[in-house]
Design a protein around this nucleic acid. Structure first.
Length: 683
DNA sequence: AAGTCCCACGTC
DNA sequence: ACGTGGGACTTC
């Protein structure tokens, strides 16, 4: 094949029935530019209509009976859809019964013409590769095995890395969490071998930490940042930098794992339990799964790092798909469970902090700042009827009411309406009381209890970057705790009971993450107290062995056939379509169906559970059903006004939302939750 | 998605 | 016999 005459093109369309390759003849004028990966415009179906797409393959033979049309235009000869990335998105889409173009849209940023022209014109200097750094906290031999291209496929190439739970000082004098230093060192060691590294973290604060640590090891020009906070031109610039045929450190949030890094040597994912690692757009793929798929095809090193494994990682450890790497020293941090005060100490009662914790806090304040973690932001996060104890709800939308400040009129957390003449929905009483304390109220109380100490509130709506020296108490919601140089002198974890009471499949994992991530901000010998939590969880934390809890969780989920012991697919939509789709897979062994149950007047939901070994077969059948339901004309509704076209069938693979709090998921479905509740800070 | 084809049903 | 309006079907 001297000059390939046919381009096989992936169309940029979300329609499942168009999710395959289309053949187009390459006109002579376009042979130069029509390279694999190029953006193209092609005619589709009838004269004049065109679609955008990407050249995925060049060939000479046509695998199609009908008339083959010509490529209309090559938008740009820059090969933006890298073959390795194409393979990754194709496999990921197949696994999730999704459309490849949905994933391509996330992996390939929109074209910015000026940025692209500047990039094509610019001959960037090639800085020397970095020297291989020593990996500070881990065994040198294990790290060498992990990163060596000579390591036999699989063995020792994939690791779960337990991060040291403490902040560390860089030689620049800046402080970062230990994980940031470790991942930056592993990445620099990979670049030193002439290979690229990808580091994917949940949010921009983590990006900033890793970047700080990486900048002292790797030339800035060798770092490409990829995160949602970037402008489109910046994003495209970073993306084009990845396309260059020389090693790069890709650092970013979840999309980093699909970057077209040249000669990939390492993929590292920090804190895979953080919900921000789940893609918001269809088909809702988890960074962890993309990383696992990509590792398999690139045969590179793979690292999941956190303070304790998720159930998913625990499963991979038990399968010996991952090998555990533990820091040489200081791997464990003990968390001291502290019972609620039963006695009659009025101040402690009011502030829900036992006297031993008060003492710990006041002593620690002499040495440095103290961190107090609470469950909720604001003043009074929940109100209840004084008579019957029922949670106070909005008369309009049934959302929970909260009080913003002392003496304020309660307002709805969902729709924001002021509840001026509230009346209990159950007993008609008009008297309510506050339940629980948010950051603001906790801060007020602590300010009174520790005169002379400065009290700072850090939560989703009030992010805090740095805190002043001196006697400082930081009251923060989980995930919003600021890092402090040298670490906190003490950490108090409040509201643990309340956090554990949330009805969600992953409560225990989430709580461990919240507590351990906060504990990791403490100075090495500083006390960390967990108030009001007992039982096996508290015992394991006291021993510094949270992974025991995770192992128990996983074995429970095996017994119950819950994820990640099995995989799930959530089918929602029109009853016939859901029934048909469910029926198409139930004949497979090892597949069972929960439901369907009614969601509203028009839609039902069914949950399919299946073993990992049946994943491919289930996804294939579900995809066939999606195509069938998309091709079928939507039934004309008898009612007039409802002109809303909703898909007959929606499939979400590995989505555990239906196992979570029914109230929260109902609110999410109706778009009722305020913006405050999205994002990392679990408000 | 959005044309095109096709058949059913309506009218003269 | 001729028009037209809504489905079904297809996309290289």
């Amino acid at each position: 094949m001297a000059v390939p005459s046919i381009a096989r093109v992936l169309l940029d369309s979300p329609l499942p029935q168009l999710d395959r390759l289309f053949d187009y003849r390459i006109p002579d004028a376009l042979t130069q530019d029509a390279v694999v990966g190029a953006r193209v415009i092609v005619p589709l179906r009838s004269a004049g209509r065109t679609a955008r797409g990407y050249v995925v393959e060049l060939t000479d033979s046509v695998d199609y009976d009908g008339a083959v049309h010509d490529l209309e235009q090559v938008v740009s000869a820059v090969p933006v859809l890298d073959p390795e990335v194409w393979l990754l998105v194709r496999r990921a889409a197949d696994r999730a019964a999704g459309t490849a173009s949905d994933l391509v849209r996330l992996a390939v940023p929109p074209r910015m013409v000026r940025v692209e022209k500047a990039w094509l014109a610019n001959e960037a200097p090639h800085p020397a590769l970095p020297a291989a750094p020593t990996i500070t906290d881990f065994d040198a031999e294990q790290c060498r095995t992990l990163l060596s291209p000579q390591t036999p496929r699989g063995a020792g190439q994939r690791a779960y890395l337990r991060s040291r739970p403490r902040p560390v000082a860089l030689n620049t004098g800046e402080w970062v969490p230990a994980f940031a230093q470790t991942l930056a060192e592993l990445a620099a060691a990979t670049l030193a071998q002439g290979r690229s590294a990808i580091i994917s973290v949940p949010d921009y604060r983590d990006v900033a930490h890793v970047e700080r640590a990486a900048q002292r090891l790797v030339a800035g020009e060798q770092i490409a940042r990829v995160d949602a906070g970037q402008s489109n031109p910046d994003r495209y610039r970073g993306f084009l930098r990845c396309l260059e045929r020389r090693p790069v450190l890709v650092l970013g949030t979840r999309t980093a794992v699909t970057a077209p890094a040249h000669a990939l040597g390492l993929i590292a994912v920090w804190d895979d339990g953080d919900p921000l690692h789940v893609e918001q757009h269809a088909p809702g793929i988890h960074t962890r799964d993309l990383a696992l798929l990509r590792q398999e095809q690139a045969h590179c090193a793979l690292v999941f790092a956190s303070h304790t494994p998720t159930a998913d990682v625990q499963r991979l450890l038990e399968l010996e798909w991952l090998r555990e790497l533990v820091p040489v020293t200081g791997a464990r941090r003990r968390i001291t469970p502290t019972a609620h005060q039963l006695g009659s100490e009025p101040r402690a009662q009011r502030a829900r902090i036992p006297s031993s914790a008060w003492q710990t806090a006041s002593q620690a304040l002499q040495r440095g700042p103290v961190l107090v973690q609470v469950a909720r932001p604001g003043y009074a996060p929940r109100l209840a009827c004084t008579e019957c104890g029922e949670t106070a709800r909005c008369r309009r939308c049934q959302g929970p009411l909260a009080q913003r400040s002392e003496g304020a009129t309660p307002s709805c957390q969902w729709c924001g309406a002021l509840a001026v003449d509230w009346r209990c929905g159950r007993c008609e009483s008009t008297r309510w009381r506050t339940v629980g304390r948010g950051t603001v109220r906790t801060a007020e109380e602590l300010g009174r209890a520790f005169p002379g100490a400065r009290v700072i509130v850090a939560d989703g709506s009030n992010p805090v970057q740095s805190i002043p020296r001196g006697r400082t108490l930081v009251v923060a919601t989980r995930g919003a705790e600021p890092l402090v140089a040298g670490g906190y002198a003490a950490v108090l974890l409040l509201d643990g009971e309340q956090m554990l009471a949330r009805e969600s499949l992953r409560v225990v994992e989430d709580c461990l993450r919240w507590w351990l991530n906060a504990a990791a901000l403490a100075a090495p010998e500083a006390p960390v107290l967990l108030v009001g939590v007992g039982g096996a969880v508290a015992t394991a934390l006291a021993l510094g062995r949270p992974e025991q809890v995770v192992a128990a969780e996983l074995s429970d989920r095996r017994a119950l056939r819950f994820p990640p012991a099995v995989r799930v697919a959530v089918l929602t939509g029109e009853p016939d379509a859901v029934a048909r789709a469910a029926g198409s897979v139930t004949e497979l062994a090892g597949v069972d169906v929960l439901g369907p149950v009614a969601l509203d007047e028009q839609r039902v939901r069914a949950i399919l559970r299946f073993d990992y070994s049946h994943g491919a077969a289930v996804a294939e059948r579900l995809r066939a059903e999606l195509i069938a339901s998309a091709t079928r004309r939507p039934r004309p509704l008898p009612g007039r006004a409802t002109r809303r076209r909703m898909p007959l069938l929606r499939v979400r693979v590995d989505d555990s939302e239906p196992f979570d709090d029914p109230l929260a998921s109902r609110a999410r479905a109706s778009g009722g939750l305020p913006a405050l509740e999205s994002g990392r800070i679990d408000a």
